[in-house]
Design a protein around this nucleic acid. Structure first.
Lengths: 226, 226
DNA sequence: GAATATAGCAACCGATCGGTCGGACGCTAT
DNA sequence: ATAGCGTCCGACCGATCGGTTGCTATATTC
């Protein structure tokens, strides 16, 4: 049959508009995937939510897998912009590391519109960690990049004497990641308001006490007896 | 049409056999859910994998949601038997806490047949943490029970003087959980063989150094300068 | 041995999945 | 002015989803 467009809603076709619709699809797709996972990110649902046809949605990506990868890329861009960029102007080493960690907390705590279901990387990592294919590879790659950045920062902190000389940067990053997995779970599953403070206390134990961005010093949690 | 059973495969109907088929379904279902999530746990796939009909599978549970809850319960039983039971005969407090943590590591590291896709609780928690309903509630309940047990053990450890007096048990459990989330991710996503040792180092930092079950003392990671 | 209960089957249901296809439409370059 | 391209549409495809139904065959109960 012929497309009529007699419902008052005329199609927009300029190449610039196309980019904007693609961005709209991606933005909403990231929100969906954050809640229901990259598998739960359905073309049909995306289409109905955005008031367009499935073919129109899929035309921008070609394949569901490509859509998933694009959503992952989009989330990576948001992540980089939200937690990495604000810390980039800080001096390398411990200061920047602390700034990143603090931005990471606010990223998990406040970005409920863009990621209503929590960090998309965590969701995707758990969802695909036992499968194989391009999506799993992309998730692994993103996580590795992020860890490498953190480890590099930790290394310069050690070189600058801001962290003890016997610090193992990879170990530090490993425990940092655990802290944030715990934060994501706490926020999503229990909605616990004290989760951020818990995380900061854990950070103090890992990085040494100190106020990163003007916040009040946190009460000590546990420290080895002198 | 009529079921004929003329393919040489006669049905078995005794109530005892029925229990065994139910267990078979659950066992395989847990393995599937571990990899593909509780949503990916499909009745059709379960049926073909086990060589039975969809109705035969669903008859034992009635609903997919009931099947998911049953799988969760089964996984909880395995978890309790594998990581809690072996430590139960240890004296309460730090010793038992250490034994649980060590059993937890081996549970994540070696149970690849029952949980080929990693800890089912972690998978289910991330999968349902942004939704609502009985499954999400069940996951939350199980996690809470587990945390309460750990916190209780930590509390007696403090009371016994095995941990510093200013230890916050909930904080300790929080960081413990993060450590194990990190372990699960490391094992599943990167298959890193050093992940267990990383976790033990983190445990030493949380619980104080000490060999829990006869293993060699681990090299120090990072300790505050004296 | 008859009656009852039940495990499991084949077949089927409407809904939705990812994906394809031809065409209508508007923008852009010639 | 017109040809071509890209965007998006409605319609449709086979496969699979969770679930229902009517039935057979066995085990159990009386």
């Amino acid at each position: 049959m012929a497309a009529r467009y007699d419902d008052g809603m005329s199609p927009r076709k300029s190449v610039a508009e196309a980019r904007r619709t693609r961005d709209r699809i991606l933005e909403h797709g990231i929100a969906i995937a954050s809640v229901d996972g990259l598998d739960g990110l359905t073309i049909g649902r995306l289409a109905t939510d955005l008031g367009m046809s499935k073919a129109g949605v899929l035309g921008h990506f070609g394949t569901k897998e490509a859509l998933q990868l694009a959503a992952l890329d989009g989330a990576a861009a948001i992540f980089s912009r939200t937690v990495w960029a604000p810390a980039e102007h800080r001096p390398p080493g411990l200061a920047r590391l602390r700034a990143v960690c603090e931005a990471w907390i606010t990223y998990l705590e406040t970005d409920r519109d863009t990621f209503p279901g929590g960090c998309l990387f965590t969701t995707a990592a758990v969802e695909f960690d036992a499968r194989s294919g391009p999506v799993r590879d992309a998730v692994g790659r993103l996580l590795r990049v992020w860890r490498r950045r953190l480890a590099a920062e930790a290394r310069t902190a050690v070189a600058e004497g801001e962290l003890p000389a016997d610090t193992d940067p990879e170990q530090l990053v490993y425990e940092l990641g655990g802290l944030y997995l715990a934060l994501n779970q706490e926020l999503q599953l229990f909605g616990a308001p004290g989760a951020a403070e818990r995380t900061r206390r854990g950070l103090d134990r890992l990085l040494g006490p100190g106020a990163p961005a003007g916040r009040a010093p946190t009460p000590r949690t546990r420290r080895a007896a002198p």
